[in-house]
């Protein structure tokens, strides 16, 4: 079943066509990587999907409903979770409280004035932290965490929404090689077990070729190739504009 479908997306800034007629789709349970050189339009594409940018043209549908131009918070409500390229967490809260906030929002209990937030959905939050390997740091403030650990907290926050689509912008940037593979393996397992569609951008080709089911390649705002890893790796154009000789 198609979870996310983008058709003929276009976006220009000040005369530069950042994204030009790009179409792709992600099925439930599928892990799709979006790759390409800097400035190829990956981030622009990504920000249209997550609601930060409005496409000039084209359609974006999540489970058959249009999401183009919806605010990020509405997209979350539809069952989408996301992580940021530069991590964004609540620095004055503990790791667990960060996940609890996402859970409180998911269960629509944020407006409560008199219950004690730190006691709500505690076990569930710890369960999510367990899954991303952060349970032992649940009591620490997010402000003091290492960068790689923040990336994992972000994944737990996204999972708190029981998402059917997970958007991850450079999920492993700044992590050590071992950690990278671990995090993406975890993500891929989650996708298969819980039937979550995953769309991620990434610069680490080892991660992409190991964990993605399918890859789309952008260059200068256009989609130049898509298919399974073996197919993309063999594509002459992709090797010319992006992979170079190192990944032949």
């Amino acid at each position: 079943m198609t979870a996310l479908a983008a058709r003929n997306l276009c976006k220009a800034y000040g005369g530069v066509q950042a994204v030009d007629d790009v179409s792709f789709s992600v099925a439930a349970g599928e892990v799709l990587a979006m790759i390409g050189p800097n400035g190829a339009g990956k981030t622009t594409c990504f920000n249209m999907v997550n609601g930060q940018l409005l496409p000039d043209k084209g359609t974006l549908e999540f489970e058959g409903r249009s999401i183009a131009g919806r605010a990020p918070r509405e997209i979350w409500r539809m069952g989408v979770g996301r992580t940021f390229q530069i991590t964004a967490t609540f620095a004055s809260m503990t790791v667990r409280e960060n996940v609890q906030m996402a859970l409180l929002s998911h269960y629509r209990r944020l407006a409560s004035l008199f219950s004690v937030a730190a006691r709500q959905h505690r076990e569930e939050a710890e369960g999510l932290l367990e899954r991303v390997g952060m349970r032992d740091q649940a009591e620490r403030a997010c402000a003091v965490l290492a960068y790689g650990d923040l990336k994992r907290v972000e994944l737990a926050i996204a999972l708190a929404n029981a998402p059917r689509l997970l958007l991850m912008d450079e999920p492993t940037a700044g992590m050590a090689p071992g950690e990278r593979s671990e995090l993406m393996q975890l993500t891929a397992d989650l996708a298969r077990d819980s039937n979550i569609a995953v769309l991620f951008t990434e610069h680490d080709m080892d991660v992409v070729f190991t964990h993605a089911d399918r890859i789309v390649v952008l260059a200068q705002g256009r989609l130049i190739a898509q298919g399974d890893p073996a197919h993309v790796r063999a594509d002459a154009r992709v090797r010319e504009v992006y992979l170079g000789s190192m990944h032949a």
Binding site: R73, F84, A88, A91, A102
Partner: peptide, 10 residues
């Protein structure tokens, strides 16, 4: 703390 994250979690 983070308007961006707050928006992203609804």
């Amino acid at each position: 703390d983070s308007p961006l994250r707050a928006d992203a979690i609804g």
